Simulated scan of single mutants.
Amino acid sequence: MDAVKTSTLSKRWRHLWALVPDLQFSCSDFPKRSVFMEFVRRACALRDGSFIRAFSLSCDDVIGSVSYIKKLITSFVATCGVGDLRLFLGNLGRAYKLPSSIFTCGALETLHVQSHCTVRLPSSLRLSSLKVLDLKGVTFEDNALMEKLFSSPSLEKLGIWDCKWRECKSVGIFAPKLRHLSIRNLPGRRNNFSYPRQVHINGDCLEYFHCWGMLNHEYCIQGGTAQLVEAKLMIFPCRRRDGIVMARNSKLLPLVSNVKELTLFNTLLKDVAKRNDVQPPFRNLIKLTLVGEIHSVAVKGLFVILRRSPRLQSLHCEEELRYHRVNGVHGLLNPLPSCFLTELKEISVFVGCRNCPKKQLFMALIFLERAVALEKLNVQLKG
């Protein structure tokens, strides 16, 4: 955008504008939406079909301009062969259809869409160069074609955030080069990805697996997971009481048992405590991060994982860790996790200074007493 502004300062610079390969427009730099959209229109008219490497458009209110934006995107994709396309569009009035020409652009390498729109894919996808795909808040109209999109031959990074799906029993993500997968379906969001279904994932090259939301569906990572380095399982409690959710929890941890870095929400720790016999060994785990307040039952689940993590070096609790002496420590420390003796060198815990700090300091004292390999204990006060 700065390059467009400088083109108005001198006639000598006017034609240099056409050489700028990256265009980034944000409405936050303008007092009114109408002024912003007129600026975008004039700036893009100056390009006159010249090459564009990257195009980014961010506007939180595009009511009345959707038709123009669709034409603009189609024009860029068709005539300029854009390689990096990013759309962050809000307050659209009602959902619109994302131009299908986007998905026939062989030059496209990166696509980010954060918008209340529907995605109707053409029957002939041509995305041989697509490496990064990030979709937020979109509605998928054809599950079979979306599965084809998620299986693009060059795709390495995929993010599916708070999206809507037509009802289907399974979703396939089979990109042969997929390295990084993020899926989020937070409670309270207007999406239906949380409807029960199976999610099948090709794990041959998967290095990072991040999952946020309700565990109403079952994940299945196919192939080997030897490349998996990091997993974040931010699973929130479900209201179902028929045991199905717990069974899915017990199937989820074995999928990531090879990771070196693992982040868990406290709900999973509670299920671990109840299903001690089904938890896998985490032989490669070096760093464990816990999210959410860890109370007595969850603490027991934590020690189940600690006993199965012989190489663990770092334990980080992002919120309060509570366990009181009246609950006893024999079940926690018998047997003592082997990492306490040889590997566990750093522990971070939070203590709420207004809410029973003695109960929280109790666990810190246990770590100091029993983790003989410990080199650093961080105790942070939380007001």
Rank of each mutant, 00 (worst) to 15 (best):
E375M: 13
R41W: 09
R41I: 09
G90S: 13
Q360F: 15
V62Y: 00
M37C: 13
R308G: 04
H112Q: 04
D162G: 02
K70A: 15
A54D: 05
T289L: 12
F39A: 08
Y219A: 07
A3E: 07
K11I: 02
F51I: 11
P21W: 05
C168Y: 03
L46P: 06
L98P: 00
C168E: 12
P176S: 14
M1C: 06
S128R: 13
G292S: 11
D134M: 15
D48K: 13
R126E: 08
P21E: 01
Q114M: 10
C205M: 09
Y208L: 10
K251N: 09
L336N: 02
S10P: 03
H324Q: 08
C238T: 10
T139F: 11
H316G: 03
L312R: 01
E141C: 14
R179T: 02
H180I: 01
R166E: 07
A373W: 10
D271Y: 15
E141L: 14
V278D: 10
L302Y: 00
V113I: 12
R42T: 04
L306I: 01
L186V: 04
G49H: 10
S314H: 04
P122T: 00
Y219W: 12
V229K: 07
V4E: 04
S10G: 03
H15V: 10
P153V: 03
P281F: 15
T74G: 15
L306A: 01
H295N: 08
E346G: 02
W13H: 05
L228E: 08
N91T: 06
G106F: 04
A298Y: 06
A3T: 05
P357G: 02
V326Y: 11
N185G: 11
N258M: 07
N355L: 15
L178F: 08
G159A: 14
A298E: 13
K5R: 13
M1I: 02
L262K: 00
F193T: 03
E375P: 11
F303Y: 10
V299C: 14
C117H: 01
S128M: 11
I305A: 06
L57V: 12
I160S: 00
L149P: 12
L262Q: 00
S170G: 01
G172F: 04
I102T: 01
D22I: 15
L262F: 03
N334E: 06
I63F: 13
P337G: 08
C220A: 11
S170F: 14
V326D: 12
S56T: 12
V326E: 07
I347Q: 02
P310T: 00
I286K: 08
S182R: 10
K232F: 05
L108E: 04
N276D: 10
S182D: 05
L125E: 04
R354P: 04
L344Y: 07
L186R: 06
S314E: 09
S67P: 01
A273H: 09
S194K: 05
P21L: 01
V199C: 14
L57I: 05
A54F: 02
N143A: 12
K232S: 06
C59A: 09
F150S: 05
